[in-house]
Design a protein around this nucleic acid. Sequence first.
DNA 1: CTGAAAGCGCTTACAG
DNA 2: CTGAAAGCGCTTACAG
Lengths: 353, 353
Amino acid sequence: MTRAETSPSSSNDKPKRPVSIRGVAEHAGVSIATVSRVLNSPELVSPSTAERVQRAVRELGYRPNLFAKSLLTRRSRVIGVSLPDIHGEFYAELMHNADRRACERGYHLLVSSNAHHPDDGPQNGFALDLVDGLIVMLTERVRVDLDAIAGLDIPVTVIGVDPPGMPVETIICDNTIGAARATEHLLVATPPERCFFVGAHVGNLDSDQRATAFASVLRGRGHEPDPRQIAHGEFSFEWGWEWAMERCDEGTLAGSAVLAANDEIAVGIVNAARQRGLDIPRDLRIVGFDDSRICSLLRPELSSVRVPVDEMAREAVDALIRSLEEPGSTPRHIRLATSLVVRDSSRTAPENP
Amino acid sequence: MTRAETSPSSSNDKPKRPVSIRGVAEHAGVSIATVSRVLNSPELVSPSTAERVQRAVRELGYRPNLFAKSLLTRRSRVIGVSLPDIHGEFYAELMHNADRRACERGYHLLVSSNAHHPDDGPQNGFALDLVDGLIVMLTERVRVDLDAIAGLDIPVTVIGVDPPGMPVETIICDNTIGAARATEHLLVATPPERCFFVGAHVGNLDSDQRATAFASVLRGRGHEPDPRQIAHGEFSFEWGWEWAMERCDEGTLAGSAVLAANDEIAVGIVNAARQRGLDIPRDLRIVGFDDSRICSLLRPELSSVRVPVDEMAREAVDALIRSLEEPGSTPRHIRLATSLVVRDSSRTAPENP
DNA sequence: CTGAAAGCGCTTACAG
DNA sequence: CTGAAAGCGCTTACAG
């Protein structure tokens, strides 16, 4: 009684237990069932009783024990997020937007680099056992991930790939449309045989789709791309630099146009080209991918294909919550468009008055 | 029995419950207490019994219900991380490294932009009630955050500020040393009255500390900085651009040197200066702060003060786990050094042969 | 509208 | 070394 009078969370002594539902019930002179009802289904309780209970809750600073609650309801309102070892900015944007959305909807986010591989985790309880559902982002074409996901007994939303026949919600970005627009844009002022795609390693879903779209547009113009027009490396500045230096040294870079698989590769190429005295965009036109923050910070500003990370994050959270809260619903497969953002690095004379 | 024979997680019918400890006990012909012991204190069980139980666990694909477990042990092995609305790359680095470390130590990370303000959350259970402890990053000098933290009844580790008298572990980066080194470096070739600090808003802890260190070094050289030498805006490209444009227009930028409060501001200044025909570093020497990825992607490469985000994340996780697992221990206050990384943007002739 | 009671799945003294 | 039992803090039929 007197203890309730003092500040609820004044740190006086030992690991004192927080007040339980029992304490509230006593304080309000009702049963614990009634306290529970006031908190979860107020409409079942008389207004006056509810009022009394709410006061007790307030005075004691009571907060229900979520573990006890989850044990009963089998719901924690925690969403797991499993991201591959992806790059800084993309990761941040995704998490930030997912967090915001989850928050709005009353959920929390548990992050873990590979939460969908229970065998990889430490022995002490898997993230999987704490979450109601899982958002998994996949970037590689590997069977093992899909198998792991198929083996889970909680709802899953997959970002990045749309595996046919799996009963999960999926969010993908349509790499094809953005890559195609970018390629067409390059072809406006550069002949097909002088266009290049500089990608990541074969097997990366995004890079491969972007490469395919690139090749497909060239073919549409009646040009079968030479294998050397499509290079494979990794998503890094260094790889872009290296690729461009080699082309420079063999004298094939000037007068060409490049679609890079991401912005970092593009920056590597730009820096190497300029180091060799080429002017962007006069001697080399270039378009990156992701439309990351850096694009408008560079001089010349870098053209790029925008990937709607913010929407992807938001849609992923919504999709997962949907399959959590409407168990019967048919999984939706959402595809978000990418779009070309033209800046100085790829402008042609007529476009640049 | 026959059900155990089929694949453990074959999705046959309805929301079937996973096997509980009871199922394992029956399968192995022991009591649930014994199953629990095999899992938590194997040394208390005879090898042969343990073996039998382990087989049952394996065959049934049993995983303990963490909610029931946490209800008893009052431990979830989940760490909450509360970050301010900070910028992309920093956020990503911090989370990535914290995640890796938490994983190594058998913990999970629950993220939330402002987990330390229970009143702000949605009504459905606070993140606070799920986590064993909280890592809070603070960037502003506001009493309200500290009060909120002081009111929490779980262990807290604070990143970014070292509030005196609070019994929490703290991790801060020593802005002073890096900012001082950078200022001294600028003074090597630029007179004190031509040096500028371009910061974020007053009240931001990092920006203020960096400004103070800057001013202090100037004073050490016998120069009391003019108020106009220390500007306040925000951590953005736009602010840097704007500041530099104004200085250019009044003709005071050429021949000066700038320490920016972060890399984005620095890039804004660089771009504006070049647009006005200034050469970096000949006409303007500049050093950023954070040493983000972008520094070495720019031309000229941007000098910057490195902030050890990776170590901060790792230390924060370790510190929190320490106060979780060694409740009596005295809170440690860790200060990690920042360091100057000189690149082309601030090089002086003699340094650049 | 309210309470007594059962039970969620586990851990941990307490006996044996 | 092992089991029966109490109990963690809740929710939810079931009676009244």
